[in-house]
Amino acid sequence: MSTLSRYVLMAAIFATILIAGLVVLLFLRDRKHELGIYLSLGEKRSRVIGQILIEVMVVAFVGVTLSLFSGNFIAGQISHTLIKTDETADFEQVDYINKDLTSDLTVDDVIGLYEVKLNANYILVFYSVGLATIFISTLLPLIYIVRLNPKQILM
């Protein structure tokens, strides 16, 4: 199960880089003339790249923050609903109970497994993966646009 979830995570990161890269490329195509003007006025390429990266990363930071806390809130509500559903469910007696199987799980242990919590490690990984993905997907199309001559960009 761990290997499968790792593959799904890698596929999701790759798809995010691809989709976000295309969105940023469309964003940069709209601002291509602006970048050409900056470069033709003598602005360094590194400063132009830095400006665009800062703009995109600020928006990405706000988006990752909103998604982290809204996702945590929604997951908590779903978990609470699942616990309430399990508590109110009327279970019928099952005839095929295996009496050899015993478990040390209590109801409190099961409820504890449904509990949704944010810890510092999870938040750090969430921010680092999210912002690194946006950084890579911004840098790739930006290098393509900025490597052109200002004359080519403005035409």
Results as ranks from 00 to 15, higher is better:
10 M>N: 11
62 V>I: 14
83 I>L: 15
153 I>N: 04
142 L>F: 07
61 F>G: 06
12 A>C: 11
124 L>E: 07
66 L>F: 14
89 A>H: 14
153 I>G: 03
72 N>M: 11
121 N>H: 12
30 D>M: 07
99 K>V: 12
59 V>F: 09
69 F>Y: 11
28 L>Q: 02
147 R>A: 04
70 S>A: 12
58 V>A: 08
80 H>R: 15
25 L>D: 08
70 S>D: 06
29 R>T: 13
39 L>D: 02
108 D>Y: 08
40 S>M: 04
10 M>S: 10
104 D>G: 15
116 V>D: 01
18 L>V: 15
146 V>T: 06
55 E>C: 01
54 I>E: 09
38 Y>R: 13
91 F>R: 05
86 D>P: 03
123 I>V: 15
54 I>C: 11
153 I>W: 04
23 V>G: 07
32 K>Q: 15
75 A>W: 04
29 R>M: 14
32 K>D: 06
78 I>P: 01
111 I>W: 10
148 L>R: 13
73 F>D: 08
50 G>S: 07
144 Y>W: 09
120 A>V: 14
95 D>G: 15
87 E>P: 02
106 T>A: 03
15 A>P: 09
64 V>D: 00
41 L>K: 12
134 I>G: 00
104 D>P: 11
116 V>G: 00
131 L>G: 01
13 I>M: 08
152 Q>D: 15
58 V>E: 04
115 E>R: 10
90 D>T: 15
66 L>Q: 06
